[in-house]
């Protein structure tokens, strides 16, 4: 059902992705704010974006988006446009946790490696590499990267972005801020998913939004 409708291939499918800040309140309550969030929505056909339109927004040397796309498979490449929500109701105090949670599923038992590269003006500034083992649940193999701590670079970036007085200034900074996530099968080095993220600030009062596109070469 989900093929062609969201981020995934026959081998791996993204179920959830969220970046958040969270504060533990009194009586063990948690106050969580989502900066960005992808969840399973109702399936709709994806529009396409020519991958060459965004090459320069991501690393271009060996192992960059162009290289990766040429190696393929092309069906594993996606672009996500996020409208991020920076209207945090959570006070930014010591003890606030900044994290990222992502969840994948697939039909095979694999060990996956997930690389997340934060890029500024198309150049990688920081990379996180995580390895995740499969857990068999309800006939599918699940891969959960739960509450992975956000790197200092991103936390500082969010702080600085929030200090800008106008949304258009934030969007101007975000024009040159991107994240590239590459998920591979650790044992075979097969590319399973490649997701390019670009950002704008949400103008909605009701939180973060997104569009997903297929990356193609037309």
């Amino acid at each position: 059902v989900w093929q062609g409708c969201s981020i995934g291939t026959a081998k791996l499918h993204l179920l959830e992705f969220s970046a958040f800040m969270e504060q533990q309140g009194e009586t063990n309550t948690y106050n969580r704010h989502l900066f960005v969030h992808i969840s399973q929505g109702s399936p709709t056909a994806l529009e396409s974006v020519d991958v060459r339109q965004i090459y320069d927004k991501f690393p271009e040397k060996k192992g960059g988006l162009k290289d990766l796309y040429e190696r393929g498979p092309p069906g594993a490449f996606f672009l996500v446009k996020f409208w991020a929500d920076l209207n945090t109701g959570v006070p930014d105090e010591p003890g606030v946790f900044y994290g990222v949670t992502s969840q994948y599923e697939g039909p095979e038992n694999m060990t996956i490696t997930c690389s997340s590269k934060v890029c500024s003006f198309g150049k990688q500034v920081v990379e996180k590499v995580e390895t995740e083992y499969a857990r068999f649940e309800n006939g599918r193999f699940m891969y959960r990267m739960h509450r992975s701590p956000m790197c200092e670079y991103l936390i500082n970036f969010i702080h600085k972005l929030k200090q800008l007085p106008e949304k258009y200034m934030m969007n101007s900074v975000l024009e040159n801020f991107t994240i590239l996530q590459v998920v591979t099968n650790r044992d075979t080095q097969e590319l399973l998913l490649c997701v390019a993220y670009v950002f704008e600030i949400s103008t909605s009062e009701r939180g973060t939004q997104y569009h997903i596109y297929r990356l193609v070469k037309e």
Binding site: Y55, E200, S204, H211
Partner: peptide, 24 residues
């Protein structure tokens, strides 16, 4: 082949790329 620092607004992107979805 590549746009090379052309502002995103001037690139060949779907109209939806600039339209924030309405909250459900």
């Amino acid at each position: 082949e590549r746009p090379d620092q052309v502002p995103m607004r001037k690139r060949q992107l779907p109209a939806s790329f600039w339209e924030e979805p309405r909250p459900v």
